[in-house]
């Protein structure tokens, strides 16, 4: 059996997300937002803090 087209299944996915309850969306955001903020914090910390490399595990143990 052939699968549906990519555009068709993408449209279905958008409809599925639009029909999802706010609790379902909140379930996703509860996981994704802390990770996004954590990655951004780590990124800026490593990029701008001159002492940041000292806190890295491999530098610490060396």
């Amino acid at each position: 059996m052939r699968g549906r087209g990519a555009i068709e299944i993408s449209e279905e996915a958008v409809s599925l997300l639009r029909a999802a309850s706010s609790a379902t969306i909140a379930t996703y955001l509860a996981g994704a937002i802390p990770l996004a903020l954590g990655v951004l914090f780590f990124w800026t910390d490593m990029a701008r803090n001159p002492f940041a490399p000292e806190r890295l595990h491999w530098n610490h143990s060396a």
């Binding site: 599925l16 999802a20 379902t24 379930t27 996703y28 509860a30 996981g31 994704a32 802390p34």
Partner: peptide, 15 residues
């Protein structure tokens, strides 16, 4: 994030 993502996917599947 992975755990919440799995629960989110399951809720979409049930929906």
């Amino acid at each position: 994030k992975s755990v919440w993502q799995a629960i989110f996917e399951a809720r979409l599947y049930w929906q």
